[in-house]
Amino acid sequence: PQVPQCKALYAYDAQDTDELSFNANDIIDIIKEDPSGWWTGRLRGKQGLFPNNYVTKI
């Protein structure tokens, strides 16, 4: 099955070790969508939390 993905609308710099940094237009694999607004994703071999208001699902 296809892994859900999202595209970064803005760059995000991780504020903690469990967060994921990314650049605008990066494509992130979505591991888990949480109602809190912090999703778990994977990018370039690293997994971490990121704010879903920085991305749009594709």
Results as ranks from 00 to 15, higher is better:
residue 32 K to L: 11
residue 50 F to A: 01
residue 55 V to N: 03
residue 21 S to L: 00
residue 48 G to R: 03
residue 7 K to F: 07
residue 37 G to N: 05
residue 16 D to Q: 08
residue 51 P to C: 06
residue 44 R to T: 07
residue 8 A to K: 01
residue 54 Y to T: 09
residue 53 N to H: 14
residue 16 D to I: 04
residue 52 N to W: 13
residue 37 G to P: 04
residue 32 K to H: 15
residue 54 Y to V: 10
residue 29 D to N: 07
residue 12 Y to W: 10
residue 23 N to M: 14
residue 53 N to I: 07
residue 7 K to P: 00
residue 36 S to M: 07
residue 49 L to T: 07
residue 16 D to V: 09
residue 48 G to W: 03
residue 20 L to C: 03
residue 37 G to E: 04
residue 25 N to T: 08
residue 6 C to A: 15
residue 25 N to Y: 04
residue 31 I to Y: 07
residue 54 Y to E: 00
residue 2 Q to S: 08
residue 6 C to T: 02
residue 24 A to I: 13
residue 12 Y to M: 02
residue 57 K to W: 04
residue 42 R to F: 09
residue 9 L to N: 08
residue 48 G to A: 09
residue 46 K to R: 14
residue 20 L to H: 00
residue 26 D to F: 02
residue 40 T to V: 15
residue 9 L to H: 05
residue 43 L to V: 12
residue 33 E to L: 06
residue 1 P to E: 10
residue 40 T to P: 00
residue 7 K to N: 03
residue 19 E to L: 05
residue 15 Q to P: 04
residue 55 V to I: 07
residue 41 G to V: 01
residue 5 Q to Y: 14
residue 27 I to L: 10
residue 44 R to L: 10
residue 34 D to H: 07
residue 1 P to R: 05
residue 16 D to W: 08
residue 48 G to Q: 01
residue 40 T to F: 04
residue 31 I to Q: 04
residue 10 Y to C: 10
residue 6 C to P: 00
residue 17 T to W: 11
residue 17 T to F: 07
residue 1 P to N: 15
residue 31 I to K: 04
residue 58 I to D: 12
residue 33 E to T: 15
residue 50 F to S: 03
residue 36 S to L: 06
residue 15 Q to D: 10
residue 17 T to N: 05
residue 12 Y to H: 07
residue 20 L to R: 01
residue 44 R to H: 08
residue 53 N to M: 15
residue 8 A to Y: 02
residue 25 N to E: 11
residue 11 A to Q: 15
residue 47 Q to T: 14
residue 15 Q to C: 08
residue 54 Y to W: 07
residue 36 S to W: 07
residue 43 L to M: 15
residue 48 G to F: 03
residue 19 E to W: 05
residue 42 R to K: 15
residue 39 W to E: 00
residue 11 A to G: 09
residue 13 D to G: 06
residue 17 T to P: 07
residue 45 G to Y: 02
residue 41 G to R: 01
residue 46 K to H: 09
residue 23 N to A: 14
residue 54 Y to G: 03
residue 32 K to N: 14
residue 26 D to V: 01
residue 7 K to H: 11
residue 32 K to P: 00
residue 33 E to V: 07
residue 35 P to H: 03
residue 21 S to D: 08
residue 45 G to A: 06
residue 9 L to A: 06
residue 39 W to A: 05
residue 30 I to K: 00
residue 9 L to T: 04
residue 26 D to A: 04
residue 39 W to F: 11
residue 57 K to I: 03
residue 41 G to S: 00
residue 23 N to E: 14
residue 1 P to Q: 15
residue 31 I to T: 08
residue 54 Y to Q: 05
residue 17 T to H: 10
residue 42 R to A: 14
residue 8 A to N: 01
residue 57 K to Y: 15
residue 17 T to K: 09
